[in-house]
């Protein structure tokens, strides 16, 4: 199981990545996370919304309300230019982290 702190750290790049491919609302975002991560990232659904609110405050995403065909009020989120730039930075940071961990673990994995 992925620890809470690591999960929390990864929410920002994951949400930004999903929204990069298009505008979407909370329920769908969660479904896509589960789908794309093959069930590895098992977020508590409710926890997504405070994160979306924070990202919006940070101006990385923007939102609008849309009433669905079933008459439900849905809030749709889209990535902003600042969000795209933040995503590039995030990706670079995570990739260097993964690379560093790879380099550190490589000898160990080889001997095993």
């Amino acid at each position: 199981m992925i620890p809470k702190a690591l999960m929390a750290a990864s929410t920002k790049p994951i949400i930004l990545t999903i929204l990069k491919s298009g505008e979407d609302y909370g329920y769908n975002i969660i479904q896509r996370v589960k789908e794309l991560s093959g069930g590895t990232l098992d977020w508590s659904d409710g926890m997504l919304y405070p994160v979306l609110q924070r990202l919006e405050k940070e101006n990385l995403i923007s939102s609008r309300w849309i009433v669905s065909d079933e008459g439900r009020h849905r809030k749709y989120y889209r990535i902003t230019q600042a969000g795209r730039e933040a995503l590039v930075t995030e990706m670079a940071q995570w990739q260097s982290m993964i690379k560093a961990l790879d380099l550190i673990w490589k000898p160990m994995l080889e001997t095993e």
Binding site: S44, D45, G46, M47, Y49, P50, V51, Q53, R54, K57
Partner: peptide
């Protein structure tokens, strides 16, 4: 249950 306990989600909103 999937949405989560109100106090936990509320706590997350509170942080912001």
């Amino acid at each position: 249950a999937a949405v989560g306990r109100p106090e936990d989600v509320g706590g997350e909103y509170f942080k912001d």
